[in-house]
Nucleic acid binder design. Structure first.
Length: 475
DNA sequence: TTTTGAGTTGTTCGA
DNA sequence: GTCGAACAACTCAAA
């Protein structure tokens, strides 16, 4: 029995603990661990730059945990895996499921192909608390509103799987000679912009576990209120690790339940619920990354403005809280959730630029870029999502800054040229008296830009635009 | 089938 | 300065 060889195909599950596929492969006998960078099947959904950078280091860490025994490939998984099965004599191929449409399509084909070869192909749930098809309304159709989805759907369904330990005995096979060195995957950029991201993160399974522990000890208590303040330590920063599966949502779910209680706990679990909801939406709407879920938005009067888009991307809009967020993104590969909403609202409402422009930039710059979550979130902020905010909900970046960064710690950190301004003017530097602007080094000259657009006028323009696509009840 | 209540994250205005 | 109402109408969920 012990000479049975199984391939465990690592994908978005770069961990040894609570890895159902790996665990079962290890129970059967020897395991050949494999990772494949499959850009052929990904097509236009090729990973963004920050994702690739994170993946490089996560694989580096995984290789260390496996004592070098991870076979690496680059190319079409539909060709690579069957060939590897033949050359290695493996009897089974195991993996944990992924949910992006292109991966589902590929994995379905692969499963057929392997089964035709007489190979046991088996997939497991390693990335979601509930499989999309598990959470349905009484009539069998999917939920489209978050609250009933989570409360009546998820919480009333089977509780999530209890995490399993790492395989007690992991007998790994050596990578075959055609396995590539990590560098050959070409995940790191040629221009080493990634260097600045590195000090902000510990990447890999251990780093993820450390971040979880820190959050459970110091962030969960007070989460409900504190998560909205970007300078407070009440967010977990687990999103990139969850994306790549350096830890499972199950570990986070049960870890939080053991460490917290009350409304702080409920709200934190609810955020995991939003992750599930996004995956569920993508599962039932494969067009989510491109098409407005609300059809009426197909005639929304988006504008084109490459210069405004560029200034938003570079954190030079002239609105300090927006710019702080966009620079945090560029410098660290991450942006605090509250600030994502403010920056997102500014792009789609004040600038009237298409949400897909924002989605594309975030996809490239966020270490946690995730197709389901990123597209669902941008559709939500634009108002065209499944259960979208009322269109008149337009964030005011000055008020939001004052409210959620009252002492300016976050904003001054990422927009240091404003650090000399008193709190009173920090979020509206153009209102500061000329003398103060001069003495704090903002003028003369383009040290910090004048606001890209007026808030009142652009708010009015957005409301008109949203009005223009409303269904006319009477003619 | 019909009805009722509700819907992540906001802003502005006027009392 | 604080507080409640208005901002609109629609879709969804569930009884």
């Amino acid at each position: 029995m012990h000479d049975i060889l199984s391939i465990h195909w690592f994908r978005q599950d770069l961990r040894l603990t609570d890895n159902p596929s790996l665990y079962h492969a290890a129970l059967r006998g020897r395991v050949l661990p494999v990772y494949i960078l499959d850009e052929r099947n990904a097509g236009e959904y090729r990973m963004g730059g920050a994702n690739r950078w994170w993946l490089h280091h996560s694989l580096e860490s995984l290789i260390r945990s496996l004592h070098g025994r991870l076979a690496l490939f680059r190319g079409d998984a539909l060709e690579i895996l069957p060939a590897l099965v033949r050359s290695s004599g493996a009897a089974a191929v195991h993996w944990n499921r992924c949910y992006e449409p292109w991966r589902i399509k590929r994995d379905t084909l692969l499963k057929e192909k392997l089964r035709e070869m007489g190979i046991a192909a088996e997939s497991f749930n390693g990335s979601l608390l509930w499989e999309p098809r598990q959470v349905r309304k009484a009539d069998g159709t999917p939920y489209r509103v978050y609250t009933p989805y989570f409360r009546n759907g998820c919480l009333a369904a089977e509780p999530p799987r209890i995490p399993i330990p790492k395989p007690e005995k992991l007998d790994t096979a050596s990578p075959p000679p055609e396995s590539l060195p990590l560098e050959a995957l070409g995940l790191l950029p040629r221009i080493r912009w990634n260097r600045q991201l590195e000090p902000h993160w510990t990447i890999g399974e251990n780093g993820a576990a450390g971040r979880l522990t820190t959050f459970l000890l110091h962030g969960l208590d007070g989460y409900r209120e504190g998560r909205d303040f970007p300078s407070r330590p009440n967010v977990s920063r687990l999103s990139p690790s969850l994306h790549f599966g350096e830890l499972s949502p199950n570990q986070v779910w049960y870890g939080a339940k053991a460490a917290g209680s009350g409304r702080d706990l409920d709200h934190f679990l609810g955020e995991l619920g939003w992750r599930e909801f996004s995956y569920s939406l993508l599962h039932d709407n494969p067009g989510l990354p491109k098409m407005n879920l609300q059809h009426s938005f197909d005639r929304f009067p988006w504008t084109e403005n490459p210069e405004a888009l560029r200034r938003w991307q570079q954190g030079m809009t002239g609105y300090p809280i927006v710019d702080a967020g966009m620079r945090e993104l560029w410098q660290t590969g991450y942006m605090h959730n509250r600030v994502r909403m403010i920056a997102g609202s500014f792009l789609v409402k004040n600038l009237l630029l298409h949400w897909r422009e924002g989605e594309a930039w975030f996809s490239d710059c966020l270490a946690d870029a995730d197709l389901a979550i990123n597209s669902a979130s941008w559709q939500w902020i634009a108002g065209c999502g499944a259960d979208a905010a009322p269109y008149f909900r337009i964030f005011n970046p000055v008020l939001q800054g004052r409210k959620f960064d009252p002492d300016g710690i976050y904003t001054r950190r990422f927009v240091p040229e404003l650090s000399g301004l008193p709190d009173r003017y920090l979020f509206s530097p153009w209102e500061a008296p000329a003398g103060l602007q001069r003495s704090s080094g903002i003028t003369p000259g383009p040290v910090y830009p004048a606001p890209l657009t007026g808030l009142e006028a652009s708010r009015r323009r957005a409301l008109d635009a949203y009005n223009s696509i409303r269904k006319k009840t009477e003619s």
